[in-house]
């Protein structure tokens, strides 16, 4: 099987939501000596971008998107450990979570997936995440980005509390803070001192790449 077939197999697995296929093509790509980063970017991630675009165009819906994300992660589990650690050091880190009091996590998970697909190393803090957790994890893993999501207005203020906490801890100047979720707005981001707010996953990845690289 040549390289092109393997890369296509990886993206097809993601597009069709077939984790087993992703695992077997990931293994094959290693056996054939394909650069794991190449397999990730031109295989798995390529497939995920197709699905991301189709979701944005409402051609596919959450069951498919979530299954594709799952498939991408299945392939990544095999390929990421094959990347020499020096190469990974360049990867920028994101800590993402849904702020305290809010359990809506589907949107956050899509953003997490697209950030992973965009080449970031993403630490998922989950949902209903206490303010202190954002701050302590950001510091302990030396993250480059803190990304926060909320779908509810009453919990929006938690985003400000996280930023205030980061300022207090002295870590604010070392991270970009991005926020998202329907009740937030660019004005709100400015008001609370976040660096950026985005309406969707793809655009926020593009912004981060611009801002960090």
């Amino acid at each position: 099987m040549n390289k092109e077939e393997i890369l296509n197999g990886l993206s097809e697995a993601v597009i069709l939501g077939k984790p087993d296929q992703a695992r077997s093509y990931a293994q094959r790509s290693i056996d054939e000596g394909i650069d794991p980063l190449d397999a990730i970017n031109n295989g798995l991630v390529k497939g995920m971008s197709v699905v991301g675009d189709r979701y944005a165009a409402r051609e596919v819906y959450l069951p498919q998107v979530l299954m594709s994300a799952n498939t991408m992660y299945a392939g990544l589990d095999i390929l990421l450990p094959m990347i020499p650690s020096e190469e990974l050091e360049d990867k920028k880190k994101v800590a993402i979570g849904v702020v305290e009091g809010d359990v809506h996590d589907i949107g956050k998970n899509i953003v997490k997936t697209m950030m992973t697909a965009g080449g970031f190393e993403v630490k998922d803090l989950g949902r209903d995440v206490p303010i202190e957790t954002f701050i302590s994890v950001a510091e302990s893993i030396k993250t480059d980005v803190v990304a926060m999501s909320t779908l509810m207005t009453p919990t929006m203020d938690g985003m400000k509390d996280v930023i205030d906490g980061l300022i207090e801890s002295g870590y604010r100047s070392k991270v970009k803070v991005v926020i998202g979720g329907p009740p937030t707005s660019p004005e709100f981001a400015e008001e609370i001192g976040a660096d950026h707010r985005d309406a969707n996953a793809q655009d926020s990845v593009a912004w981060l790449k611009e801002a960090l690289f």
């Binding site: 939501g17 959450l62 069951p63 498919q64 979530l66 299954m67 799952n70 996590d105 589907i106 998970n109």
Partner: peptide, 11 residues
């Protein structure tokens, strides 16, 4: 859990 149900719908 919504995500679990959605993925299981698919598989």
């Amino acid at each position: 859990g919504a995500e679990r149900v959605f993925m299981d719908m698919f598989t």
